[in-house]
Amino acid sequence: MSAAISISGATKSYDEKCVLQGIDLEIQSGEIFAILGPNGAGKTTLVEILEGYRERDSGQVTVLGIDPSSASLEWRNRIGIVLQNASDAGDLTVTEVVENFAHYYTNAKPPAKVIDQVGLSDKAGSKVNTLSGGQRRRLDVALGIIGSPEILFLDEPTTGFDPEARREFWGLIRGLREEGTTILLTTHYLDEAEELADRVAVLVDGRIKEVARPSELGGRNSKGARITWSDGSGDHFEESATPTEFLRKLSVQFEGEIPNLQIKRPTLEDIYLEMIEGRA
């Protein structure tokens, strides 16, 4: 695998405030990569530098082997961007907008197919200003993928979605991965990162705290588990680094099932909150 995105020592300040304090990151081609972080951590700034919307102050950045700050239209032909909050094109229909964007790319997908792929077939002839929030985001995604991008940028794609819409959306993203698209997304939702991402980076105060698979972030896989159960005298718990061993011993005290038995590993959210709490 080769690096689709490569960042080393990237910094960015607005006025006096340092937003990115030296970012190093490699994202492999074909990977779904999520950037997690609290508001104001620099997620959007970082992504906008990669998209060519913003200039960094220093450091090296390449996306598909090209520096986005001096990128050409040929480069733009190879990437797709899903914006966080656009509210344009209200008087046009879904099909009209998607068909128009298809003309900008040399390798556009058939508009009707893309509209179907994002689940907007029923709304293909509807004006954009009659769409619900979630449907609008699907249109945003359709416009991001119409040009068969090699890399797709998604900035907080499911904000404001209901749970069902989010699940459908995840399915859509997985489908894109199967086509070989590299996907970089930022999100507030840890379940989303866990569900979709091959790797996540936690960005806090303009620095990357850790890059890992969601199941391994913060040593999550090797951390102890919490075992809870009940017996005649009440509820009990035990923190153990070797839960299997503990359970083996515990089980001999009971004839059959252990009442109310639960073994819990720390969730991604537990780990994440631990990581961002440490900040100043």
């Binding site: 914006l83 656009a86 509210s87 344009d88 040009g147």
Partner: peptide, 17 residues
């Protein structure tokens, strides 16, 4: 107004000259 609505930002992100 198109700048405010994000129309231009979106177009900027495409290969449209």
């Amino acid at each position: 107004m198109e700048r405010d609505f994000g129309t231009l930002k979106r177009l900027r992100g495409t290969p449209m000259p």
